[in-house]
Amino acid sequence: MASAKPRIKVPKSAVKGEVVEIKTLISHKMETGLRKDKDGQVIPRQIINKFTCTFNDKVVFSADWHPAISANPYMAFHIRATESGKLEFTWHDDNGETYSKSANLAVS
């Protein structure tokens, strides 16, 4: 796969004040930098080192990841549904690339 592919699971709607679970998964090797290849050369570290979730442009949850996070990182967390709006998810790769995905949450 050319580039990391994210998946997100967000409820389409929520009742005002409800705390809802958000699940995320992204394809990534999370190369630790501790492995060696067949010739004994260290395979350079390349991980996703930061994950951020914003709701209407305000950070609601973020995480710093180290090489001990498993390949194809999974992250589930919660947000309190206060108003309808847009959730944006961003993953930051060691190589400078960012991967993103967004979803709308309707609050009634």
């Binding site: 973020s62 995480a63 180290h66 498993s70 967390f77």
Partner: peptide, 24 residues
Amino acid sequence: PNPQVASLHFTPASGAAKASTRMR
């Protein structure tokens, strides 16, 4: 080899300080 695994940062908007992931 490196004891750090992850740092999870919550806000009041998180609603719950509850999260899950997978580690090595």
